[in-house]
Design a protein around this nucleic acid. Structure first.
Lengths: 151, 151
DNA sequence: CTAATTTCAGTCAAACTGACATAC
DNA sequence: CGTATGTCAGTTCGACTGAAATTA
């Protein structure tokens, strides 16, 4: 129920980059989930709304390519967003396989709200680091991400 | 099935530390899972065996405190490890609530094997970074982890 | 025919919750 | 009594798989 008050891990584990990454990611996930959950959203909702807002109306397949979210999850997440009238699904007249997904005004409002939450969470997450250190971390992680994910 | 060949994320998302962390952690998890999965293990197995090897025979509750794994997951993971004779569960004579968990010789052999796998994976994970950068990353993540996780 | 798009029905690992029986 | 321990059954989120139907 509550945080146990002891060692995070054995020596052979706690120095491992992969462990440090997954653990700090778990912290980040706790913070993000907490923040978004407090306003009835979760990570995929934010990521999809942000992707959609940036790309303009698109197909679900394109949404998948631009968000890094799997197509099957796109379908499910869009169902949830559409139910709240944050996005609109309409058939594409020029290609009848496709749906055109559009973010609604309510969706844009929600997105702006979620963005505020997310920004606050970043600050909580990075609290112990100076500005230079934060930038350093972002640069290092970006390099790792650029390298993998083209695999 | 295969990697989509496009943008990882929209601008408002791809600079977020929380997103970078969870995505690099996902890469790390893919690599670790792949490596461990190839020898029939997963993260909890390695972490528990390592914790156990370091602490010597202990109770499950202590194991939970020292590994950062939830008690309920400890139970399930120990069931799996015991089934493969990598650990032994025996009742504690001085406190009959407790089980004393001991790593077996086979468990130690397995642990040594898993360690090799894990070390290789670290190198794959950090490939694009210099040694100094790797140390930097480890320091920054450790600071974050020390800060959070104390509640 | 092949290829792209959407949908559905799953799996999986990790983290976590709540309840319960037992023993200290 | 309250607290610690072990067990079980369950959820959540994110990532992922496989298959099917439709249309280009």
């Amino acid at each position: 129920m509550e945080t146990p008050s002891t060692d995070p891990a054995p020596v052979r584990v706690r120095g491992l980059p992969s462990w440090l990454l997954t653990q700090t990611a778990a912290s980040a996930h706790r913070l993000v989930s907490g923040g978004l959950g407090a306003v009835g959203a979760r990570g995929y909702h934010f990521r999809l709304l942000a992707t959609l807002d940036e790309s303009g109306p698109t197909s679900q397949a394109a949404l998948g390519r631009h968000s890094g979210i799997h197509l099957s999850d796109i379908v499910a997440t869009l169902n949830e967003l559409a139910e709240q009238d944050l996005v609109e699904r309409s058939p594409d007249p020029v290609d009848r396989r496709r749906n055109v997904i559009t973010i609604t005004p309510a969706g844009k409002r929600k997105l702006r709200h979620l963005e505020k939450v997310i920004v606050q969470v970043q600050d909580e997450l990075l609290e112990p680091l100076s500005n230079e250190e934060r930038e350093q971390l972002v640069r290092l992680l970006t390099r790792l991400l650029d390298h993998h994910g083209r695999g």
